[in-house]
């Protein structure tokens, strides 16, 4: 039985800021990272370890300074902005800690936004899918509400629904529970796990919260721009319906 192709394959990824200037800073010193399809992983590390940079490179928002990166089987190192944008739309979902949603649009319109970007219009089927996703995150009643009318936890759940709108193989979440109370944080995390289980979507979650990290299939630790050896928290059965204790 062959393992499914990995969604992320990084080899010797380096990132240097302000190259060639006196304030040159190398943030990533050769990262090798492979994320299998459908894996639910946490990315942890102290501040300044390069987590955000690595996430941005995985998310095609920044380019690496060296090394090779294949996303969903395709090399992306030499793509131009237009091709990177297209790859983001087709392959990736994003969930951010702050500024999750577009305040001018209703919750439903926010969820359907990726379809509007892709097709220029949101047809009935897409609206139905957006409504279903909102129902899945427990916000069926909030469809017509503006983000400002929703609590932080609710906004984050809308953002999760949005990240799944085009059913991407990989969702990147930057501190998705960072500014939420424990109850909301727990609810959001459960939601991510459920979508991982139900849709087979791979998740990479940047977090500071060790309890969150502990409940992921795998913990990737970044220290001073290098990956620490896997810490052994990796679960072999990613489809386990119950959460680890």
């Amino acid at each position: 039985m062959t393992a499914p192709a990995p969604i992320v394959e990084m080899k010797a990824i380096r990132k240097v800021y302000n190259a060639g200037t006196p304030i040159e800073a190398e943030v990533l010193h050769g990262v090798d990272l492979t994320l299998p399809a459908g894996e639910f992983s946490a990315l942890i590390g102290p501040s300044g370890s390069g987590k955000s940079t690595l996430l941005n490179i995985i998310g095609l928002l920044e380019k690496s300074s060296g090394g090779s990166y294949r996303l969903a089987g395709a090399a992306v190192d030499s793509l131009d902005d237009a091709a990177l944008t297209a790859a983001r739309l087709a392959t990736l979902g994003f969930v951010f800690q702050f500024h999750h949603l577009l305040p001018a649009f209703s919750a439903l319109d926010n969820v359907a936004m990726p379809v509007l970007i892709r097709d220029g219009r949101v047809n009935a089927a897409a609206r139905a899918r957006a409504a279903q996703l909102l129902a899945d995150v427990g916000l069926a009643d909030a469809a017509g509400k503006k983000p400002t009318q929703l609590s932080g936890g609710m906004q984050q759940r809308v953002a999760i629904a949005r990240s799944l709108m085009l059913n991407p193989p990989l969702v990147l979440a930057d501190e998705p529970t960072g500014n939420l109370d424990t109850v909301s944080a727990n609810a959001v995390f459960e939601l991510l796990r459920r979508f991982n289980r139900d849709f087979g979507t791979a998740f990479l979650i940047v977090t500071h919260d060790p309890r969150i990290a502990a409940r992921c299939d795998r913990v990737i630790e970044l220290i001073d721009g290098r990956l620490a050896p896997d810490t052994g928290l990796r679960h072999t059965d990613t489809l386990t319906p119950t959460d680890p204790p």
């Binding site: 998310g59 928002l61 902005d81 237009a82 944008t85 297209a86 983001r88 739309l89 087709a90 994003f94 951010f96 500024h99 999750h100 577009l102 936004m113 990726p114 970007i117 892709r118 949005r162």
Partner: peptide, 9 residues
Amino acid sequence: ILRAMGATR
């Protein structure tokens, strides 16, 4: 956010 989601330049 729109650009990250895949809106083109």
